[in-house]
Simulated scan of single mutants.
Amino acid sequence: MQKPYKIPESVLVVIHTSDLEVLLIERAGHPGFWQSVTGSLDTPDEPLLATATRELFEETGIVADGERIVLRDWQLSNVYEIYPIWRHRYAPGVTRNTEHVFSVEVPRDVPVLLSPREHTDLLWLPHLAAADKCFSASNAEAILQLPRQLEKLAGA
């Protein structure tokens, strides 16, 4: 039986510390592909915050409890062309994905437990170095926007 196609709507979760160290994780099966947490909706009606919470936990073991660790919705979406190496996961003819951006501030010593089927390694880097290391342009751009977004969120 064929796996169901992925929904072309996803979340990107930039994990960072208060001093803008950013956690990057390396994709299993694609050495050198470093990224933040990403993942598609499980169902078309799954709330974005639920998707971000689920993906954060599935990929890193970090629990966004809403008190000590709080996901922040940037109210920002990117539409991008799906990389050809991953298009087979989507229905025929689907070539674009809508990605919704979130961030989460964590203590630097937060335990990170990678999902071995998805990721093989992790790095903490200053945000500019993390942006340079990302293979995804939208992920790199989100990391570059991190200081500005945090200022905006603090003023809200």
Results as ranks from 00 to 15, higher is better:
residue 1 M to I: 12
residue 2 Q to I: 13
residue 2 Q to N: 14
residue 3 K to R: 15
residue 4 P to L: 03
residue 5 Y to K: 03
residue 5 Y to F: 15
residue 7 I to K: 10
residue 9 E to A: 06
residue 10 S to W: 11
residue 10 S to H: 07
residue 10 S to M: 05
residue 11 V to D: 01
residue 11 V to M: 00
residue 12 L to A: 13
residue 12 L to T: 10
residue 14 V to C: 15
residue 17 T to I: 01
residue 18 S to V: 07
residue 20 L to F: 15
residue 20 L to N: 08
residue 20 L to P: 03
residue 21 E to N: 11
residue 25 I to Y: 02
residue 26 E to F: 08
residue 26 E to I: 01
residue 27 R to H: 09
residue 28 A to H: 10
residue 29 G to R: 06
residue 30 H to I: 14
residue 30 H to T: 14
residue 31 P to R: 12
residue 31 P to L: 05
residue 32 G to H: 02
residue 32 G to E: 11
residue 33 F to Y: 15
residue 34 W to E: 01
residue 34 W to R: 03
residue 34 W to T: 08
residue 35 Q to S: 08
residue 35 Q to E: 09
residue 38 T to R: 09
residue 38 T to E: 08
residue 38 T to V: 10
residue 39 G to I: 08
residue 40 S to I: 00
residue 41 L to F: 11
residue 41 L to P: 03
residue 43 T to M: 12
residue 44 P to S: 10
residue 45 D to H: 09
residue 46 E to F: 05
residue 47 P to S: 12
residue 47 P to Q: 02
residue 50 A to M: 06
residue 50 A to G: 13
residue 52 A to S: 08
residue 53 T to D: 06
residue 53 T to Y: 02
residue 56 L to G: 01
residue 56 L to S: 08
residue 56 L to W: 08
residue 59 E to D: 15
residue 59 E to F: 01
residue 60 T to W: 04
residue 66 G to L: 02
residue 67 E to F: 06
residue 68 R to W: 04
residue 69 I to W: 00
residue 70 V to L: 05
residue 71 L to Y: 12
residue 73 D to L: 01
residue 74 W to T: 07
residue 74 W to H: 14
residue 76 L to Y: 04
residue 76 L to N: 02
residue 79 V to H: 04
residue 80 Y to L: 09
residue 81 E to Y: 05
residue 83 Y to A: 13
residue 84 P to R: 04
residue 84 P to Q: 11
residue 88 H to V: 10
residue 88 H to M: 10
residue 90 Y to I: 08
residue 90 Y to A: 03
residue 92 P to N: 07
residue 93 G to M: 07
residue 94 V to N: 05
residue 96 R to P: 06
residue 97 N to S: 07
residue 98 T to F: 08
residue 98 T to D: 10
residue 104 V to F: 04
residue 106 V to D: 03
residue 107 P to N: 06
residue 107 P to D: 04
residue 110 V to K: 00
residue 110 V to A: 11
residue 111 P to Q: 12
residue 115 S to A: 10
residue 116 P to W: 03
residue 117 R to H: 12
residue 117 R to F: 02
residue 122 L to Y: 12
residue 122 L to F: 09
residue 122 L to K: 12
residue 123 L to A: 14
residue 124 W to F: 13
residue 125 L to F: 01
residue 127 H to I: 02
residue 129 A to S: 10
residue 130 A to F: 05
residue 134 C to K: 00
residue 135 F to Y: 14
residue 136 S to H: 13
residue 137 A to G: 07
residue 137 A to W: 09
residue 137 A to K: 14
residue 142 A to Y: 01
residue 143 I to L: 08
residue 145 Q to I: 02
residue 145 Q to P: 00
residue 148 R to M: 13
residue 151 E to L: 14
residue 155 G to N: 14
residue 156 A to E: 15
